[in-house]
């Protein structure tokens, strides 16, 4: 995957800070997303991942720094404004109505109609065919476009939500932990789809706390820790081991290791030997 570094980022955050009361949730976070690139945001629970995506998607405002979309400074008052600029977020709960059919969910809130009022009615044929076609195009095979969304697997549901966001003009796709609740196979489906979205020229922000998943699809990696940037690095300057290392505490872990090494090991050794002896017996 070659990324043209000269291309201006579609979405750029510089030194973003956010405080809730006297709690500093984020400080000095910078991030840029380019079209055709997957930016992974990793971090432990409480690292500030969700605050960051809420700022990007317009649910929260920010206190410091700047947020630019296609070079224009923005401060969103609602998610609708972000959506209008093509920034779509697929949350973990997906915003799908489980008992309704796949095609009805696909077009929910953006239904196609034909005819004139008062006989203006849903263009069911077009919606059903288009939804089916769009899903096929992205390599998703839903057994039956009329089946309730609730009967799809978790991975398929994610993918339907993603396909919907793309179909309705998303330029930047924010995926909030799309693989968190899924098994290996289902995660694979979603990751393949993230890759397809990148090929389609979207900028993707992939939030996860699984470095293995991130490394399979990411072009750029950002690790957050306690509201600050632990790491921001392009793929070529990084190995999976580095990433895992940064994820699991990075510099702090090194310091801890160092500290542990300085402490004389006798009791640890004793415990260790004891454990080994026990295992042997």
């Amino acid at each position: 995957m070659t990324v043209d570094k000269e291309q201006p980022p579609i979405l750029e955050l510089t030194d973003i800070g956010k405080t809730f009361g006297n709690i500093r949730a984020l400080s000095g976070v910078s991030l840029s997303v380019r079209q055709g690139e997957v930016t992974c945001i990793l971090g432990d629970n409480g690292a500030g991942k969700s605050t960051l995506i809420k700022i990007i998607s317009g649910l929260h405002s920010y206190d410091d720094g700047s947020y630019r979309v296609a070079g224009e400074q923005v401060k969103f008052a609602s998610p609708r404004e972000a959506l209008d600029l093509g920034i779509a977020t697929v949350y973990q709960d997906l915003a799908l109505a489980p008992q309704q059919s796949v095609w009805r969910n696909f077009y929910l809130g953006s239904e196609l109609t034909k005819g004139v009022w008062p006989l203006r009615m849903l263009d069911v044929e077009t919606m059903r065919d288009t939804a089916d076609e769009e899903l096929q195009k992205m390599g998703i095979h839903v057994p039956d476009i009329d089946q309730p969304v609730g009967t799809l697997s978790g991975g398929q549901r994610q993918v339907v939500a993603i396909a919907r966001a793309i179909h309705f003009g998303a330029k930047v796709l924010i995926l909030d932990e799309p693989t968190a609740a899924l098994g290996v196979k289902q995660s694979g489906v979603v990751l393949k789809y993230i890759s397809a979205a990148r090929k389609a020229g979207l900028g993707v922000i992939f939030i996860t706390h699984n470095p293995h998943h991130a490394f399979l699809v990411g072009d750029h990696f950002v690790v957050l820790r306690q509201g600050e940037l632990e790491l921001s690095s392009p793929r070529k300057e990084l190995t999976l081991d580095d990433l895992t290392h940064h994820m699991s505490g990075g510099a702090d872990l090194d310091a801890l290791k160092h500290e542990l090494q300085r402490i004389e090991p006798p009791d640890v050794g004793a415990v260790h030997e004891l454990a080994e002896a026990e295992q042997e017996s």
Binding site: P79, D93, A95, L96, Q100, R104, L108, G109, E111, L122
Partner: peptide
């Protein structure tokens, strides 16, 4: 009608997509 079903099913999901 589509909105009615969706709202009864999951109103937060419906609101999130602009219903």
């Amino acid at each position: 009608g589509n909105w009615i079903y969706a709202i009864g099913d999951d109103q937060d999901a419906a609101r999130a997509v602009g219903v």
